[in-house]
Design a protein around this nucleic acid. Structure first.
Lengths: 232, 232
DNA sequence: TCCGTTGCTTGACAATTATCAATTGACGCC
DNA sequence: GGCGTCAATTGATAATTGTCAAGCAACGGA
């Protein structure tokens, strides 16, 4: 592990409150690796060997069943994934693959569980992180069950706009086919949904989106903090 | 709180590993109440005042948006709900209402958070519980995104059968309209889905379901432990 | 530069799911 | 027992979403 990576990891909510000694133990056993795009990092059903932390790049979490595949989430720097499986010592529920070239830390699950047992600051931080993850999945579940595909896209665009600092123009961070899968629709229908949003002031050119009539789009999307605000 | 309730709560995973003193603190501030059916216990968006524990009866968790409503889960004895909101001191993401007459313990969120800060055994138990909840929501999310409504129903029936001790005949524990909402479909389509499962050996009469051809149903449903096994 | 690949888009059509309206059937209450 | 209420079912129809096939545009490598 490069020495300059360590302070950045230490600063994460998850590791901030643990003892220096335990943090040392955790990091010593871990290692950093750079992966090219489209490398599968974990496979659902496999046993949890490592807690992963994305330093740069991005990782797509996806799930499969009966020959079908769906995109569940995208993990961006700097955050962890498959914490729940690691702590519970249970099989992964999702697979992970790099979307782009990514630098990733791997911490052996055994070490994570050992430190979790000993370090109360860490245990509390894990609670906070898990509660956050749980609430995030509940929100996407509400999004899926309560909204039509056009409404999901409209709200996704409003969230993207916010993430881009309320800019009227921003880039989609996901390939459209993956965005479609994430939103629970086919690429063809995503295309049509974009077209359906044109009367509401949504202009798309490649990966660039321009929102020219925010009021109109918001009237359609009806964003709610209890679904769309991922900070709480 | 009735004295005979206390050992039962103490035996829950969540409270088993905490100190006697902290458990006493927690229980002292709490109280038990019996609610009639169809009483709304929490409203999404409200601030989290109590951690709830269902002792008897059952509670439906549901969510609303834009005049629509969907059933998210059913909480049965003996377990807790809205733990994540309580710990994070964040607003509820779901509303709760009693499905039937239910006895429920209410523990003030403030007390829960205070004990969480002091008692490491409790903090670890909370992690375990949250990880379980997180994984359960991920599973239902996969169920929703990867399966058609008939496949969801087929797998739901197989899970119900298992819960009933692999009996060939069992009762639906949910009203059909709520089951429909939980499975992400309308009551009308649930009716048709039951009919569509008749050739696969599913006989329904009122709330009683009889599975006469398990193999056939399983071939259709293709149950997976990574979606349908709620014990891991 | 050309070519092959890949992702996006479009149109036609099919499947799935929802909506609306009406009926049936079960249950509790008077 | 009769009646009102409500959930469940059914049929007809509409809306939504998915599938298949074709065409287009951007990109990278030879």
């Amino acid at each position: 592990m490069r020495p300059e990576d360590i302070p950045e990891i230490r600063a994460l909510d998850l590791f901030r409150d643990m003892s220096e000694e335990n943090f040392g133990d955790l990091v010593r056993g871990g290692y950093v690796q750079t992966f090219p795009p489209q490398v599968q990092l974990t496979t659902e059903g496999d046993h949890s060997d490592f807690l992963h932390i994305v330093l740069t790049g991005s990782v797509e979490m996806f799930a499969t069943w009966n020959g079908r595949e769906t995109s569940m989430a995208t993990v961006r720097p700097i955050s962890t994934f498959i914490l729940a499986a690691t702590i519970k010592d249970a099989p992964y529920l999702m697979s992970a693959r790099t979307s782009e070239k990514s630098r990733i830390i791997l911490l052996p699950s055994m070490d994570v569980r050992a430190v979790f047992e000993n370090d109360n600051g860490f245990a509390r931080a894990v609670v906070s992180e898990l509660a956050q993850c749980y609430r995030a999945v509940v929100k996407t579940s509400k999004d899926l069950k309560l909204r039509s595909s056009i409404e999901r896209l409209a709200n996704y665009l409003l969230r993207s706009r916010r993430r881009a600092g309320d800019a009227p123009e921003f880039e989609l961070l996901l390939e459209k086919r993956r965005l479609a899968s994430f939103l629970g629709m086919t690429p063809e229908n995503l295309s049509r949904a974009f077209k359906a949003l044109r009367p509401y002031g949504v202009e798309v050119e490649g990966a660039t989106v321009r929102i020219t009539d925010l009021d109109s789009l918001e009237r359609l999307a009806k964003p709610s903090p209890l679904i769309d605000d991922f900070s709480t």
